[in-house]
Simulated assay, not measured.
Amino acid sequence: MIDNTKIEELKKKAVEIRREIVTMVHRANSGHVGGSLGATDVLVALYYHLMNHKPDQPDWPGRDRFILSKGHCTPVIYAILADCGYFPEEDLKTFRRPGSHLQGHPHQPKTPGIEANTGTLGLGISTGLGMALGAKLRQQQHYYYIMCGDGEIQEGQVWEAAMFANKYKLDNVIGFVDRNYLQTDGNSEDIMPLDPLAPKWESFGWKVFTIDGHDYQQIIKTVENAKQETQPVMIIANTIKGKGVSFMENEVNWHGTPPDKQAFESALKELTNGI
């Protein structure tokens, strides 16, 4: 079990990342704040505790790879990559600006730390699984962490990819579904029901864990357990969209709406180390 001191460090880091997410989207007057806030704890656990990576060597062959299949939630990955040192934090001020390498969706050739271009929903997990197969064929020992949105997995291509992973026994893949039940048009269960979700992945040959996506002990323990499996793993992380900002939590309107000055100031006031 991870010690409480480390857990508190991760929680404080998550507050910093959430503050940066809100700031970036407000500054750009564009971007996806709700899903980014909700995914923060999983990504903080990965980048600051679980993943093998070297920010000063973005192309280090032995690194673990993270792929944001729900590619619209770039504020969270950009904030973390900058904080880790993949590129200057000053670059965050150019988010979604013409000519910036920090576009609304991840752009692999230009942004250090980004492993794949994503944004067209369903392509990220397909790309990641193909990369994972390549790594196994080369007998490379690293993991592919792939985060999907729950609305995203309504795409048929996701389930084709799921079959592919089972066929090739990709035990170097640890996936996440960011299960917040909200997508751009409303509640996922109203738009295209997904529940019961775990049995679906299991029927495609994946080992499935279901966790609280804001509980660091659960996130870390589950990933460590996933590494012992001999099949691809999907972790269903139950999260709260807009986590950390009370008026954004579980509100679909904050899927892709940037905060105005008043909302921005209110959000920053809430996002303190005391939360």
Rank of each mutant, 00 (worst) to 15 (best):
N273L: 14
A237M: 05
F209V: 09
V42Y: 10
D195Y: 07
W159R: 01
E90D: 13
S126T: 12
K207G: 11
D190I: 09
L81G: 06
R96H: 08
K12F: 10
G34M: 03
I240A: 07
I17A: 07
V158W: 02
I77G: 06
L137R: 10
M147D: 01
L268S: 12
P55E: 09
E155H: 06
G99L: 07
T74F: 05
A45Q: 09
I67V: 10
M24R: 06
A28L: 07
Q218F: 00
N52Q: 15
S100E: 10
Y47P: 08
N117K: 11
H142K: 15
T230F: 13
L133H: 11
L81F: 07
H49E: 13
I125H: 08
G128C: 04
I67E: 03
H142I: 12
E189Q: 08
Y48I: 09
K243Q: 04
N117S: 14
E89V: 12
I211Q: 06
M51A: 13
M1H: 14
T23M: 11
L170R: 04
D150E: 01
R18W: 11
V22E: 05
G175E: 04
G62F: 15
E152T: 03
I80M: 07
R97P: 10
T120E: 12
I235L: 02
G149D: 01
G242N: 00
K169N: 15
G151T: 01
A14I: 05
R19S: 12
K6H: 13
A116V: 12
T257S: 13
S188A: 09
K12Q: 15
K200T: 07
K12M: 14
A116G: 11
A79F: 08
E270M: 06
R63T: 11
L43C: 14
D260I: 02
A82Y: 08
D260S: 01
G213C: 01
T272R: 15
V44L: 06
T5Q: 15
F204K: 00
L197T: 07
I220L: 11
G71C: 04
Q183A: 01
G186S: 00
H72A: 05
D3A: 13
R179C: 05
A116F: 10
P55W: 10
A162G: 00
L268D: 13
G256N: 08
C84E: 11
F87I: 07
L68C: 05
L102G: 04
L271V: 07
F176C: 00
V177N: 00
D3V: 14
K6W: 10
L68G: 01
S36D: 03
E160P: 01
Q183H: 02
H49S: 12
S30P: 08
H32W: 06
G186I: 00
Y86V: 04
G38M: 00
P61D: 14
H214S: 03
G244N: 05
C148G: 02
H105G: 07
N180D: 01
Y47C: 13
A237K: 04
V158P: 02
Y168K: 14
T210M: 09
M234P: 03
K6T: 15
V33C: 08
I236E: 02
L137I: 14
S126V: 04
P75A: 06
Y48T: 10
I125C: 12
M147W: 02
D83C: 06
L121G: 02
I125D: 07
T222M: 02
E16K: 15
E265L: 12
D150K: 03
A267M: 06
A198F: 01
V22G: 06
Q140L: 14
I235N: 01
A237H: 00
I77V: 13
P58S: 13
T257G: 08
L170M: 09
H107Q: 14
